[in-house]
Computed example of a mutant assay.
Amino acid sequence: MNSTLTLKPRPSNTALIAWQFTGQPLYEWPNWVQSSCSLQRSDDGQLELRHERRSGAQIVYLGEWLVHDLDGGICFYTDAEIRKEFEIA
């Protein structure tokens, strides 16, 4: 399964890129994820991506999605949230 999707916001014609964190090694991450996130383990040993933002760190867990918008911002969504918020192209 390909873990990178092209998304269409509802109701717009703007395309976005989404990537699902499934524990891939760093070299398989898209460049925009490599440049903005770091891999770490939580206190309970769970893999997580840490994405630093001006408002504080976002923690992305296995199975969650990172969405790269046209302004260079990155947000994260659970699988259910991404399917509710976007149309998959």
Score class of each variant (00 low, 15 high):
residue 44 D to P: 01
residue 20 Q to H: 07
residue 35 S to R: 13
residue 29 W to N: 03
residue 33 V to I: 13
residue 79 D to V: 01
residue 45 G to A: 04
residue 68 H to I: 00
residue 5 L to N: 05
residue 31 N to G: 11
residue 18 A to T: 03
residue 51 H to T: 00
residue 26 L to V: 08
residue 59 I to A: 10
residue 40 Q to L: 12
residue 4 T to D: 14
residue 67 V to K: 03
residue 23 G to K: 02
residue 84 K to C: 11
residue 22 T to Y: 06
residue 33 V to C: 04
residue 55 S to T: 12
residue 26 L to T: 14
residue 42 S to H: 07
residue 52 E to H: 11
residue 41 R to E: 15
residue 49 L to D: 01
residue 83 R to D: 13
residue 76 F to Y: 13
residue 80 A to W: 01
residue 37 C to A: 15
residue 78 T to P: 00
residue 73 G to F: 08
residue 26 L to S: 12
residue 18 A to M: 10
residue 5 L to I: 07
residue 58 Q to D: 15
residue 31 N to L: 09
residue 42 S to R: 10
residue 78 T to V: 00
residue 6 T to F: 09
residue 88 I to G: 02
residue 77 Y to E: 05
residue 52 E to C: 06
residue 89 A to Q: 09
residue 56 G to T: 08
residue 71 D to M: 09
residue 44 D to Y: 06
residue 4 T to S: 15
residue 11 P to V: 07
residue 35 S to M: 09
residue 82 I to Y: 06
residue 88 I to Q: 10
residue 36 S to P: 02
residue 50 R to L: 14
residue 9 P to T: 12
residue 69 D to A: 06
residue 44 D to A: 13
residue 50 R to E: 03
residue 65 W to H: 13
residue 37 C to G: 00
residue 65 W to L: 11
residue 33 V to W: 08
residue 36 S to M: 07
residue 12 S to Y: 06
residue 31 N to T: 09
residue 66 L to T: 03
residue 46 Q to S: 15
residue 58 Q to F: 05
residue 47 L to N: 10
residue 29 W to Q: 02
residue 49 L to M: 07
residue 33 V to F: 15
residue 13 N to I: 08
residue 60 V to K: 08
residue 62 L to P: 10
residue 88 I to E: 15
residue 21 F to D: 04
residue 2 N to D: 04
residue 9 P to V: 06
residue 48 E to S: 06
residue 66 L to C: 03
residue 84 K to M: 06
residue 2 N to F: 02
residue 35 S to A: 09
residue 69 D to N: 15
residue 52 E to N: 06
residue 19 W to H: 04
residue 19 W to G: 02
residue 50 R to M: 11
residue 27 Y to Q: 12
residue 85 E to Y: 08
residue 19 W to Y: 14
residue 26 L to N: 07
residue 48 E to A: 11
residue 88 I to H: 09
residue 22 T to S: 15
residue 20 Q to T: 07
residue 80 A to L: 05
residue 70 L to H: 05
residue 66 L to P: 01
residue 6 T to S: 11
residue 57 A to E: 03
residue 1 M to I: 10
residue 87 E to P: 01
residue 45 G to F: 04
residue 21 F to T: 04
residue 42 S to I: 01
residue 87 E to M: 11
residue 51 H to M: 08
residue 27 Y to M: 05
residue 52 E to I: 05
residue 25 P to S: 12
residue 2 N to L: 07
residue 55 S to P: 00
residue 13 N to A: 10
residue 11 P to F: 11
residue 35 S to Y: 13
residue 60 V to F: 14
residue 19 W to Q: 01
residue 27 Y to P: 08
residue 16 L to D: 04
residue 82 I to A: 08
residue 41 R to D: 11
residue 11 P to W: 08
residue 77 Y to V: 04
residue 25 P to N: 08
residue 41 R to F: 14
residue 38 S to G: 02
residue 72 G to S: 01
residue 79 D to I: 01
residue 60 V to A: 10
residue 38 S to M: 03
residue 21 F to P: 09
residue 13 N to V: 04
residue 66 L to S: 03
residue 84 K to G: 07
residue 37 C to S: 12
residue 78 T to K: 02
residue 72 G to L: 01
residue 60 V to R: 06
residue 25 P to K: 10
residue 19 W to T: 00
residue 53 R to L: 14
residue 88 I to V: 14
residue 56 G to F: 11
residue 32 W to T: 04
residue 89 A to V: 14
residue 47 L to E: 13
residue 39 L to I: 11
residue 61 Y to C: 10
residue 69 D to I: 00
residue 53 R to M: 13
residue 3 S to P: 03
residue 7 L to H: 07
residue 18 A to W: 12
residue 7 L to A: 07
residue 71 D to Y: 05
residue 22 T to E: 15
